[in-house]
Amino acid sequence: MEAGLIEVAAPPVSCPPRAAGRTTGAVGPSTAHRTGFLRLAGAVAAKDLRVELRSREVVYTMAFFATVIVVVFSFAFVKDQRALIEAVPGVAWAAVVFAGTIGLGRAFDREREGDTMRALLLTPAPRLAVFAGKTVAITALVISVEAVVLPLCLLFFNVDLGAGVLHLALVLVLGAVGFAVVGTVFAAMLLRVRSRDVLLPVVLYPILVPMIMAGTKATGALLAGAAGDAWFWTQFLAAYDAVFVIVALWTFEALVIE
């Protein structure tokens, strides 16, 4: 105990030069605070991703689930022994959203099992940094699933996108961000609620509707070669993300109290 106290007390002795360097000079106090915020958010995200990389449980199950969805749908939408290309946007986004919901549930169950969410919220890190970190980690998970779903869809449905692939990647990333922002808030709120597995999709999907719509429209436009329409829906997706980032930042602190 004594040793621990000394250890805790020791760092400040060597700290002042570094701390002084951080707050003075070109970097003002507010910027110092912001870098602190980003560093904390990064730490939370890195922790989540490291836990995930060690077991790879969520990412494997999500990716496999998404694969199964794409396969099942490609059986369902068959005409003259060929899968219907018109079904691609719907199939791709349904697979991403369903698999993403599974991933969200598991990622937060992990926090609940070890009761580590409470520990995370008890740290002096601002709640919003915790939120940002969690969102980044979920975004990374969803993007990794999309990286599986997109090639599969192109393969099973015999689509050649050409140069549109990069644009489609941007659309999918924007979709992943929107999903992660809204999903993180809701999954964190549902952490202490019973029957959360059922309630998460019930509350999440109606809010995700504009995102899914814009995503499918953009994907459909890209498949049809209408780059102008696709660009329009890409901007809509960006606006959706921006609106819900603001709402999430505004409500997260009030909503997630252990």
């Binding site: 809701f186 709120m189 549902l190 202490r192 019973r194 029957s195 959360r196 309630l199 409500t251 009030a254």
Partner: peptide
């Protein structure tokens, strides 16, 4: 949702 659902519901309504 049981006890403590007030806040969750309020968040859902705002969203």
């Amino acid at each position: 949702a049981g006890a403590g659902s007030e806040r969750l519901a309020a968040g859902l309504a705002v969203f």
